[in-house]
């Protein structure tokens, strides 16, 4: 694999803290349009068979930048799972409430990812996916989210055609209403870790964390972002817990057998 597509320490820490990573793919000219055109012509939702109906999607899944990010986050022999789904948000349809897919399986690890591919530009009016950064480690059944609508720090996937968003499986997500006459296309893929890391699988600098702890100071290096990043501004108690979970996750990715709190 071309190591230039592996994530950096800062990007890895960004994923641990925020629970997502965006890639704008340099796909062959016209590919996004062909994918969107095929989706527009579908008269049914083929479910898991969407990549057979629209085989051009494999060029996104197998793009070097996607593979590099997946190797970085899930290890060299990650699995592309068989479940995938075309999320076609119809014109003039309402929002979708916050949820996590499946049951909640929070732990300290990065073992499962969602891949969200957008073959067209997505505007705020088209019903973008919206995520809440940093919520991937929360043990919060979807029913408990029913009294939330807008949350401080939420991020709409208002993106350019050809964007591939990787999110932690347990990240809170929903959608805004589609107020346009256009269909909003998103194809969801699942990826899974097969085995634990014995060593870092990204572009890791062993000295990356060998910097002073910046209590109240500049925090734009991996160590201090991992410790102090607070994307939605949670309270001190939750932040302390987040910090412990993140360092366990980081140590697990490094291949440290007995991942400590750091």
């Amino acid at each position: 694999m071309d190591k230039s597509h592996l994530l950096t320490d800062m990007e890895m820490v960004g994923f641990i803290v925020n629970g997502y990573h965006l890639l704008e793919l340099d796909l062959p000219e016209g590919l996004n349009e062909r994918i969107a055109g095929r989706l527009e012509e579908l008269d049914h939702n083929p479910g898991d068979a969407i990549a057979e109906e629209v085989p051009e999607l494999w060029q996104a899944i197998e793009h070097p930048a996607v593979e590099g990010a997946l190797v970085s986050l899930l290890g060299e022999d990650y699995e592309v799972q068989g479940h995938r789904h075309w999320h076609c948000k119809q014109p003039h349809t309402g929002h979708m409430s916050w949820h996590q897919d499946s049951t909640n399986n929070r732990d300290n690890r990065i073992d499962r990812l969602l891949g969200l591919f957008y073959p067209t530009d997505i505007t705020p009016e088209m019903g973008p996916t919206i995520i809440v950064p940093g919520t991937q480690f929360r043990n919060a059944p979807t029913d408990r989210m029913a009294t939330y609508t807008n949350i401080h720090g939420q991020v709409p996937m208002v993106v350019r055609a050809g964007t591939f968003a990787l999110t932690h499986y347990d990240l809170w997500h929903g959608t805004a209403a589609n107020r346009t006459s256009l269909k909003r296309h998103m194809i969801k893929f699942l990826f899974r870790r097969v085995r634990d890391n014995r060593a870092p699988t990204w572009n890791h600098d062993p000295e990356a964390m060998n910097v002073p702890t910046a209590w109240g100071g500049k925090r734009d290096d991996p160590k201090n972002v991992l410790s102090f990043g607070n994307p939605i501004g949670v309270g001190q108690s939750d932040h302390y817990k987040e910090r412990q979970i993140r360092w366990k996750c980081w140590n697990n990715l490094l291949g440290v057998a007995d991942a400590s709190d750091g």
């Binding site: 973008p128 939330y148 609508t149 949670v234």
Partner: peptide
């Protein structure tokens, strides 16, 4: 303390609180 989530519920027919972009 600061508010992290805000959901108004107006008692009028067909009202829905929405997530917005």
């Amino acid at each position: 303390s600061e508010i992290l989530g805000y959901t108004p519920v107006e008692p009028v027919r067909d009202y829905r609180a929405e997530i917005t972009a």
